[in-house]
Nucleic acid binder design. Structure first.
Lengths: 130, 130
DNA sequence: TAAGTGTATTATATCACTTAATACACTTAA
DNA sequence: TTAAGTGTATTAAGTGATATAATACACTTA
């Protein structure tokens, strides 16, 4: 539970993956899930770096990718804000989900599992709500 | 379609992932799927390296991991052979599938998707046989 | 004007991965 | 016995991604 809370966001970083990627994915998930409101300001690069105890450049790298995906808008001198474009958020959310599904099905297929197997395994594991 | 065939195995390598990991996973999948018979010999380290145009050390790394997982048995001077332990193969196959399912569900949950959503997306994508 | 933003640059360090070149122990077949 | 083919170990080197550090600049706001 190495969880860090800052500006309405939750982070837990480890060494299993590049830091910038973890920051990117966790902010992105928060946006996709609607845990952080559209138009809201997220912590500044320096603030985030200090809170997560990582280098500002590493945070920058994550923030720049978020902007490239148009999930955030950055205003020089003001800060970084979640986009107000709800459609864009849904677009990204669906794209990421599709990628996850494809990748998952490919993996399962490579192990020789069929659709029926996969469905029953998911139902068995299903600790997911709804 | 950068596919390479050697000793009943199919490989397609790229730069998106460590080479030794790709070799490992692709041999492992072939075993799990039963595409290569139990007890069968797989190409020698040097032979495989030459065919895939990679370094013998890189192949070694993959082969050693396969042996650690007890999916292969190596006999000095003779070669590397698929295990004859069918139960072990199923064990690994199921373990990998469980991991894939867990990781997938975690990812989907992080995007705010529930079980129903997931099931319908899988049915929609389902290009998998059976 | 001062403090807080995003941004860019240069340098350095570390680590995983890969290749290369050799060498050794073992097995098998000629 | 010998030669060729196995797995295995070692040492060295190069490369690229990642992360840090230090600094500077442009912009905005109070």
């Amino acid at each position: 539970m190495n969880e860090i809370r800052i500006g309405g966001l939750r982070f837990s970083l480890d060494l299993s993956q590049p830091l910038y990627e973890q920051v990117l994915e966790q902010v992105r998930s928060s946006i996709a899930k609607g845990e952080i409101a559209l138009g809201e300001k997220i912590p500044s690069v320096r603030e985030m770096a200090q809170a997560l105890k990582i280098n500002p450049n590493t945070v920058m790298r994550a923030y720049q990718e978020l902007e490239r995906e148009r999930l955030t808008e950055t205003r020089r001198g003001q800060g970084t804000f979640i986009t107000t474009d709800a459609a864009r958020v849904q677009e990204i959310r669906n794209k990421l989900a599709e990628q996850a599904v494809e990748q998952f099905l490919a993996k399962m297929e490579s192990l020789g599992f069929g659709l029926k197997d996969i469905e029953s395994m998911i139902r068995a594991k299903g600790g997911v709500s709804q």
